[in-house]
Structure formats: structure tokens, C-alpha cells
Design a protein around this nucleic acid. Structure first.
Lengths: 216, 216
DNA sequence: ACTTGAAAACTGACCCGTCAGTCATATTAT
DNA sequence: ATAATATGACTGACGGGTCAGTTTTCAAGT
């Protein structure tokens, strides 16, 4: 603490503290919302988990809704940046098959095998009650994910690696291709106690079947 | 009403009325729960929708939880019977591919393209809060569905129609195979306003990719 | 360095609308 | 007549949101 204090001249200590609080609250919110679901989560629980009082919580977020929305935003945006940069790094070097494998594994590792997978469940659970969050999620996460997958598949078709499935593109091709991942996340959260799955080998199964269905 | 009243001797009118009430309540419950989600649904809304008072509702179901559980049971069990009988009818006549197509289309037609698809979303949304309902759903619906699909795939492997994917069986094969359908239902409920899908052609895409991945 | 005082940050008891569940009373069927 | 059904006003717990009061931070004055 003593070493890294000369950040910015004047107002900075307060600012840094404030920023840290924000992060703490977001983390607490994800934890509580993931555990209890939106409706059953109490603002008191989030405050406790973040180590602050309820009053302070309301200094950072105007309402429970705003907290939920803010949590989704701040947990998802960094991931998209990371995805974008990893895509740039590997551009043009790999076959379509390897590119697909690479992205699929990235998705499983950074979303499904993380706390973030609970966000997906929450969107599904609360989506109809929060149309603007569903829209936000679609715009920032899903549409970009589907666009990336579509690009890979088209690349594979161009190279002759994949058979020509372009006429399925507007009829659920991408949703079908990604579906395995979504179901893995949901299964892990809900049905794992009854029939556990191992995400690592599940991912390979998904790739196996999907590539089998795509390859020329 | 006047025509079909000579059912059973004495107490029967009351009994029939009671049974009809039960059905009305279940239908109302599905409608309201599907629209508002479990937590935001009010018992008053269900009562209104069923055309009875709240007090009467409590003569049929002890609590909101019991109503939810009862609704899931009574909406799902008839479907399973229907599935069972349709399976018996077509036994041994078809190739594995045709059997898979047949069952997939049954699933899309009788679950996904129906009010019942909301039940799946509700299970996902509320599963963690209702472990016994999640277990019930797994035991009565999922485990039977997965068993049926597994049987078809094994049948296809035996006949030489499908490549040998039996070592993937314990690693998510069935979940991957069915995932497209689940995602279709969720997408239709949540993201359809932003990017609509047509279930009919979506089903064909699902079959196309899945069979491509399975065939020898 | 050391007060000082005012603004910023924080607190938690309290307020108040909501809704699951109850029950005294009314209605209907036999 | 009377038992079975149905009703809806009522209760009490619960939790989102508020705010008067307390503590902390920090810059300006000495």
C-alpha cells in the first residue's frame, strides 16, 4: 500500500478507493445473484458480502435493477476485449478447423468454466423481466459471438474444408453450433448433482460432433 | 353439458367439476408463471386467470411451491406417455437416421413449439431454488429423453449407419446432441425479438448438422 | 507539523408497499 | 337441512429504498 500510492496527484486516493468499492460490489453481486437468483437476492446480502452497509450500496447503484444491469455490463465487457485481442493474435495462421477448436476452447475456458456462466443462467431466467438487459446481452455478447462463429464457418467453406452449409446460416446454424456450450453451462449449474459432466471432455465431444457435421 | 352428465351414479358431478377446476388452475398457473416467472407471479393472478378466488386456489394447492411443482408434474407426465406410445408404434421399422428424425421432430413439435417450452425455462431459472423439482424433472423427463436418444444412437452404431461414438457417451454426447433443441426454446423465448428463428427450419438444420456428425 | 472545518463517504434504523397464506362468512348442491 | 364449496377482506412477515446522523478524508490556515 505504501509503495504504490503516488498514482495521480491530488484526488486520487479517494478515486481509487471508490473504484475498488465498485469492483467489490460487482463481485459480491455476482456471487449473491448467482447463488439466490435475482428475485430472492437481498440488497442486504449483497452489502454484507461486499463488506459495506446497505446505504453505501445505494450510493453506487440506484436500485436493485441497476445493480444487476451494471454487474452484467462490467463482467462481460472485459471478456469481449480479451476475445477480440486473442482473435487478432491468431489471425490467418490456422485452418478453419483449428480456428474453431481454438475459439471453442476459449469459450469453454473463459465463460463456461467460470463464475460468468451464472450470468448466462441469470439472463435466461430474468431475460423476460429485463428486456433491456436481454437486448444489451444480445447486442454486446451474443451477436458478436455469432458473428465470430459465422466468420469461421464461412472461412472453412471458402477453403473447402467444410461442406457448403451457407444456406443454413439464416436458419439456426450458428445457434445449433454453439448450443452445446450453453447447455453445458446450464447442466453444470442445475443437473450436475444428478449426472455430472466434465467440461474439458464435454468440449471435445462438442467439437467432435460439430466438426463431423461441418467437414466436407 | 346436458348430454354427458350420466357418467357415474351419485357424487360424480362434483367430482368432475373438481377435476375441471384442477385443470383450469394448472393451465392458469403455466400461463402466469411463464409470463412473469415464479417469483413475480402472484397467487391472485393465477386465481384470476383460472376464474376463481384466491381462497379456492388454496383448497387445491397448499402453497405456491406446491402449485409450481404440481403444474410441472401434470404438464409433463401426459407428454411422456404420448412419447412412449409413439415409440412403440414405430419400433423396429425404421433406420436409425429416420428414427432420430422422427423423435427430434416429435420433440420440436410437442415441447418446443408449445407452451411447454416455458416449463424448461422455468426449471432453468428456478432449478437452484427448487432442487426437488430439478430432480423430479431430471428423473421423469431428462433421464428418459437421454435414454431414448442414447438407444437410437447405439442402434445406429450397431447397424453401421453411424460411426462408433460410444466412447463419447459418458462425456456429453447426448447433451450435445439434444442441445440444439433446448437452445431453440430459450432463444425463441428471449432473443426472438432481436433475431427471430423459425422452429421448423431450425429443426432441420439441427438434424442436418447432428446427422452429419454421427453418420459413418 | 498540527489543528480545523467542511465536504465526502458511510451507516443502519426506519418507512411503507407488497403478497403468501388464513378464516369468518356466504353460496351452492344434494 | 346441511355439508361441501367458494369467497375476499385481513394479517403479518419481508425487503427495497430512504435519510438523519456519524465518521473519515484532506486541504487550507497557523
Amino acid at each position: 500500500m505504501a509503495l504504490i500510492e503516488t498514482r495521480t496527484p491530488a484526488e486520487s486516493r479517494r478515486e481509487a478507493r471508490k473504484e475498488q468499492r465498485r469492483v467489490d460490489i460487482i463481485d459480491a453481486a455476482l456471487k449473491v445473484f448467482a447463488r439466490d437468483g435475482f428475485a430472492l437476492s437481498k440488497m442486504d446480502s449483497v452489502a454484507d458480502e461486499a463488506g459495506i452497509s446497505k446505504g453505501t450500496l445505494y450510493l453506487y447503484f440506484d436500485s436493485k435493477d441497476a445493480l444487476f444491469e451494471g454487474m452484467v455490463r462490467e463482467k462481460m465487457l472485459p471478456l469481449l476485449d480479451k476475445l477480440q485481442s486473442e482473435i487478432l493474435e491468431t489471425e490467418g495462421e490456422l485452418s478453419a478447423e483449428d480456428t474453431l477448436r481454438f475459439h471453442m476452447r476459449f469459450f469453454y475456458r473463459n465463460v463456461l468454466n467460470t463464475d460468468r456462466r451464472h450470468i448466462m443462467r441469470l439472463i435466461i431466467a430474468e431475460g423476460p423481466n429485463f428486456p433491456h438487459i436481454a437486448k444489451f446481452y444480445y447486442d454486446t455478447v451474443l451477436s458478436k459471438g455469432t458473428a465470430a462463429f459465422k466468420a469461421i464457418i464461412n472461412y472453412g467453406i471458402e477453403r473447402g474444408e467444410f461442406r457448403d452449409v451457407s444456406d443454413l446460416s439464416g436458419h439456426g446454424l450458428i445457434q445449433v453450433a454453439m448450443a452445446g456450450g450453453l447447455v453445458a453451462a446450464l447442466w453444470k449449474t442445475i443437473f450436475d448433482p444428478f449426472e455430472p459432466i466434465d467440461l474439458e471432455s464435454y468440449c471435445e465431444t462438442h467439437l467432435n460432433i460439430l466438426l463431423g457435421g461441418l467437414k466436407a
